[in-house]
Simulated scan of single mutants.
Amino acid sequence: MQTIKGLLFDIGGVLYVGDTMISGANDTIAILQKKYPMRFLTNTTRRTPIVMMEKLNRMGFSVKIDELFTALDATKSYVHSQNGTVHTLLTDEADVWFSELKSDVPDFVVVGDAHLNFSYERMNEAFRYLLNGAKLIAAAKNKYFKEEDGLLAMDAGGFITALEFASGVEAKIIGKPSKAFFHLAVASMGLKPEEVLMIGDDIISDIQGAKDAGLHTALVKTGKFQDADLHLGIDAEYILDDVTHLLDMLDEF
């Protein structure tokens, strides 16, 4: 494998699950930060980027806001680039991130993991905006994630698919597995895709997405990983029990 010069880490499921850190993850990141530039990528859309950064730092990681690439940030940047306005279907916390872009006649309907806000009334409201000509943005379209109790929980993907089916409007996906999302993070380190390794627990969004974007890949068997992921025809270059095993792997290069 070509020499790795930079690292991209998924967050939930790789560094922690729920509010519990993967044992040794903070020490592993601290060691690697002395050797590699890195960025932290997440499709988590329940919380704002600032809250995500604060959570990581409370756990003992050292992450700066410009090292954090979130689907919410990328979505907001995209809407700004289009001079657009939005209607949102998000958690109350994430909704604040888009407050200055809100409109009763939105150009875009932005959907993320709205958690308890995924009610029939809110879904139908979004559906009607789409029928009136708004475009659909999926901040992220993951199928599921692992909760603190160790069980899988539905993510935004199923709800977004329902809106697509009902309205006939195809969603533009902003976060992983979008190539543009990976390339933005890679470019921020001044590197090329083939010089960067993506570490994730999601075989579709993290591994397939990174492969399509030209990155190297390492799949960790934590978070939402399931044994069935190994039989989907998507081959990560490396498979690790958890993120701490990355140290030994990288020592080989």
Results as ranks from 00 to 15, higher is better:
67 E>P: 03
5 K>G: 00
84 G>F: 05
136 L>G: 12
45 T>M: 04
133 G>A: 05
135 K>M: 10
137 I>F: 15
89 L>P: 14
23 S>M: 05
105 V>M: 05
76 K>W: 13
30 A>Y: 07
116 L>C: 04
44 T>K: 12
127 F>S: 13
47 R>D: 15
43 N>A: 07
53 M>S: 07
113 D>Q: 07
52 M>T: 14
47 R>W: 15
93 E>N: 05
130 L>C: 14
88 T>H: 04
60 G>P: 06
24 G>S: 02
83 N>R: 01
57 N>A: 10
18 G>I: 06
89 L>R: 02
59 M>K: 06
112 G>N: 06
16 Y>I: 01
64 K>V: 12
17 V>R: 05
130 L>H: 13
90 L>K: 11
15 L>E: 07
116 L>H: 15
117 N>F: 10
97 W>M: 07
97 W>A: 04
74 A>K: 00
53 M>T: 10
127 F>Y: 15
69 F>Y: 03
102 K>S: 05
66 D>C: 02
61 F>K: 00
19 D>K: 05
26 N>S: 10
26 N>I: 03
122 R>K: 14
86 V>A: 06
62 S>L: 01
133 G>D: 07
137 I>E: 01
9 F>H: 02
71 A>K: 11
111 V>E: 11
113 D>P: 12
49 P>K: 12
49 P>S: 09
113 D>Y: 14
82 Q>A: 04
57 N>K: 10
79 V>L: 01
48 T>G: 09
